[in-house]
Structure formats: structure tokens, C-alpha cells
Design a protein around this nucleic acid. Structure first.
Length: 276
DNA sequence: GCTTACCTGTCG
DNA sequence: CGACAGGTAAGC
């Protein structure tokens, strides 16, 4: 489900709501959702902790606590719903609820996930965050990388095809299947092209376009193709702006039907005439 | 690299 | 009924 823009939308919504709130005892409807530490330690270590800020690295939401960090990855169908006191739905109304995180004031954060791929981690400090959660995660494409850095990273991966490279969270963190296809379309780059074939102008344009598309995605509240919801349960609107993703056989603005192929193991949409 | 696995649901 | 879904880790 969520790529960088969707996680960033949730981050921006939640930070003002949660800051200085104190967690009560978590309720684990599905304990295997907790990736680290043990379910028992997660419950006892989170209770009583205060939220200081909320950050993001790639697709990871990072809730900074007075002591440690609560990290969340939504994977394909996870969502984080915020509820004020009393209106909290029980598992009866949401059969996919996996974890409930109540606060001492009666409000709560609920982690729901149909496909059960999403995970939560609770680590004690930034060193643990890096070594346990973010070990294979590269720099955030929006926050941690200037154009020159991006060009240097590209030069280290010249054999890689662009689609696979942008999806690789160890290269840069945040791009997913939808936004990658949209960026390559806008840049007129074929998904199978190797990084070494890009001119300097194309590389700079790719960097700028990635940032533009992600910023637009955030401004539109994310993309709801099927399952994505923000922390209020609302859909995003960027799907109406997609040029190629999900549009197989529809006509590109050049008149050519959009094609779909499998690249890097993922469904990939592109215009065979515009993208070379 | 590619394939498979993890899950549940939807679409054709 | 099979194919596929916004993600990623693990195994060749």
C-alpha cells in the first residue's frame, strides 16, 4: 500500500495529535505483529512512554519517545487510525485490527492490516534503531539526499535497471511501485534502461522529477488505489493524477496504448513510445 | 538477478 | 478458478 507520500501524510497528521501524549498498556490482538522485542517486552516497555516527535525514513514511520523509538512499517495493507476517546471501534467493527495503542487520555492509535505483513518495533535508542530496524535502508529520497549525492549513488549502480534501482530501498528509501512508474514516465525513461545510459541532464531531471512527484503525492493526501487510508480513515486523491500506473491499454497522451510488463518482479506500466 | 514466501481479498 | 495487489526477506 503505502509509499513515501502516504507515510508522510500520516506522519504530518499524527505528529500534532500525539506530541506529549503518554502511552498506556498496548493491546496485541495479533502478537506476531511485533517484530522486536518480544510481545511481552513491547507491552511493558511502551506503557508510560511519552511521544516527543514523529519522523520518517523512507516508508518507516518513526515515533520518537522520551526513551527510544516506536517504528512502524505498513507494508501492503497496513494503516494507522487515530481515535479520540470513546469512539474507539473494537475488533468487532474492524476484523483486521492487529494492535491497539491507547494513550493515558483515552485517545488511541490502532494498527490495522488485512494481509498481516506490517510490523512494529520498539527500540531503546537510535543505535538500536539503525542496527535492528533500518540496517538495509538507504538515505531518504526527500530528506537525506541532495542532487549531487543522488548522482554519486547512481554512478555506483550503473549496471542496474532504473525500475529495479528506484525500488531498491537500500539505494534510496521511499520509492514504491506506483511513484516509480509515474516518475519514469514523466522522465521518458524506459523502466529497463540501465543507469549508465543516462546523460547528466537525464540524471538531474530524474532527481527533480522524483521530488516533484513525491511532493505532489503528499499534497494530494497520497494515492488510494485500493486500501490506503490516512489516520482519519480518509482516502488519498493522487490516483486521479496517475499517467500510467493501472492504465494498461488506455491511451497515453501521445495516442499509444499503455503497456504492462513485469520488471524487477513487479507489474510495470509504461508508454512504449514516450519512454526510451 | 529471479523465485518464493508471507497473507487476504478482489477481479477477470 | 487463477492471477494479481501499494512491500520486503530469504533462498537459489
Amino acid at each position: 500500500m503505502p509509499e513515501l507520500p502516504e507515510v508522510e501524510v500520516i506522519r504530518r497528521e499524527l505528529e500534532p495529535l500525539l506530541i506529549e501524549k503518554t502511552f498506556a498498556a498496548p493491546v496485541l490482538h495479533m502478537p506476531s505483529t511485533i517484530a522486536y522485542p518480544s510481545a511481552e517486552e513491547f507491552v511493558s516497555d511502551l506503557a508510560g512512554q511519552t511521544v516527543k516527535s514523529i519522523a520518517r525514513r523512507g516508508k518507516y514511520l518513526l515515533i520518537n519517545l522520551a526513551r527510544g523509538v516506536l517504528a512502524v512499517h505498513l507494508r501492503m495493507t497496513g494503516n494507522l487510525l487515530y481515535t479520540e476517546a470513546a469512539e474507539a471501534k473494537g475488533p468487532k467493527e474492524d476484523r483486521y485490527r492487529r494492535v491497539s495503542l491507547p494513550f493515558s487520555d483515552g485517545s488511541a492509535l490502532h494498527f490495522s492490516d488485512m494481509r498481516r505483513f506490517g510490523r512494529l518495533w520498539l527500540v531503546g535508542n537510535d543505535h538500536e534503531l539503525q542496527s535492528i530496524v533500518l540496517r538495509r535502508i538507504g538515505p531518504d529520497i526527500l530528506n537525506d539526499l541532495c542532487c549531487e549525492d543522488f548522482l554519486q549513488l547512481l554512478d555506483k549502480r550503473e549496471q542496474s535497471r532504473l525500475k529495479a534501482l528506484l525500488l531498491d530501498q537500500g539505494f534510496t528509501a521511499g520509492m514504491g511501485n506506483i511513484y516509480t512508474d509515474e516518475c519514469l514516465f514523466r522522465c521518458k525513461i524506459h523502466p529497463l534502461r540501465q543507469a549508465k545510459t543516462l546523460s547528466r541532464d537525464e540524471k538531474e531531471n530524474l532527481y527533480a522529477t522524483i521530488r516533484d512527484v513525491l511532493a505532489e503525492g503528499i499534497a494530494y493526501g497520497g494515492t488510494t488505489f485500493r486500501d490506503y487510508r490516512n489516520s482519519s480513515g480518509a482516502r488519498g486523491d493522487f490516483q486521479s493524477m496517475l499517467s500510467v500506473y493501472g492504465r494498461k491499454d488506455e491511451r497515453c497522451s501521445c495516442g499509444t496504448p499503455i503497456e504492462k510488463a513485469t520488471v524487477a518482479g513487479r507489474g510495470t506500466y509504461y508508454c512504449p513510445r514516450c519512454q526510451k
